Simulated scan of single mutants.
Amino acid sequence: MQLTTRSDDHAGIEVHHFDQAVATSDDIQLLRHHIYTNKVVILKAQELKPAAFVELGRHFGTPVSYYEPMYHHPENDLIFVSSNLTRPEGQIGVPKTGGFWHADYQFMPEPFAFTLFYPQKLPHGTRGTRFINMATAYERLSPRLKEAVGGTVSKHSARRYVKIRPSDVYRPIGEVLADIERVTPPQTWPTVLVHPATGERILYISEAFTYAIEDAHGNALPTSLLDDLLDASGQLDDSYEHPNIFVQTYEPGDLVLWDNRTLIHRALHNPTNEPTESFRVTVTDEHPLSAEVAA
């Protein structure tokens, strides 16, 4: 396998000639190191069947099935499918997923360590993912905002962006919301996390899932603080020109791995609604997300 550092301002790692059938444990540990430190690793020219894709995920950690079955691949429920393809046998997966700033499973008790993203059908126009490195975002905060978030915790919930299931049709919205709160009750994480592998401080908030910030005594802080943090990190910039934002576009055969603790992301959907499909496997590693509040 051959590793190349990308030359743009938001350098990740491109990996050529990777074959998981012959990859050694040292190869995998090297790639894990680069995911932690470089945040994005692109395996080029991959041709994997669903079972092999899941097995690749097992090399990096423990794959976790998404909690909503309507996203599952019919051959393996560890694969999350985003697809707008029309098939005779019916819809597989869910169309236009992830069009908002978030970290995968940020609203769950055990968020993922790594996301493995494998486009299957790409449109002719732009299809990619926008990213923000939230360790860099924390570093760039003003002294006032760094002081304001010290010792605080943030509340996270899926309630704003849960997609309505087919079984929810004709149900009262209050019942649907009650189900969301029961299945995915709000989670509390430090507003500033310490990365367990790199020691970086990460601003652990997102436009999609974070809805409140509290001080060390559980007192709600002004909503303006969350708004200021989202704005400073780039998540409120509708032009997507904020210096914290970078874009990863895809070529056929690309398989992209990223650090889900540090990066938040937002899908770059093609406005023409051309046929598009992608698979995703998400895994935990041996490091739990720290509940310790950074000062």
Results as ranks from 00 to 15, higher is better:
M1L: 13
Q2K: 15
Q2Y: 13
L3W: 01
S7W: 03
D8Y: 09
D9E: 15
G12R: 11
H16R: 08
H17E: 15
A23Y: 13
I28S: 04
R32K: 14
H34V: 04
Y36E: 09
Y36R: 11
T37Y: 04
V40N: 06
V41G: 06
K44V: 05
K44N: 03
K44A: 03
Q46M: 11
Q46H: 05
E47N: 13
L48T: 11
K49T: 07
A51D: 14
V54T: 14
L56C: 06
L56F: 13
L56A: 01
H59C: 10
H73G: 05
E75D: 15
N76I: 05
Q91Y: 00
Q91M: 12
K96F: 11
Q106N: 02
E110C: 03
P111K: 00
T115E: 14
F117E: 09
F117P: 07
P119Y: 08
P119T: 05
G125T: 01
N133Q: 06
M134C: 11
E139M: 08
R140N: 15
S142V: 02
R144S: 15
L145R: 02
T152L: 00
V153F: 02
R159P: 00
R160V: 09
V162Q: 10
R165H: 09
R165D: 10
I173G: 05
R182G: 07
R182L: 14
V183D: 12
P185A: 14
Q187Y: 02
W189V: 03
V192H: 01
P196K: 02
E200N: 01
E200D: 07
R201D: 07
R201G: 01
I202F: 06
Y204V: 00
E207T: 13
T210H: 08
Y211P: 14
I213R: 12
E214G: 00
A216K: 14
N219F: 00
P222N: 12
S224R: 10
S224T: 11
S224E: 13
L225V: 09
D228Y: 04
L230F: 09
D231Q: 02
A232E: 04
L236V: 04
L236K: 09
D237K: 03
S239R: 09
Y240D: 12
Y240W: 10
P243I: 05
V247G: 08
V247A: 06
V247H: 11
R266F: 03
R266N: 15
V281K: 12
T282V: 08
T282Y: 13
E286Y: 14
E292I: 05
A294Y: 12
A295F: 07
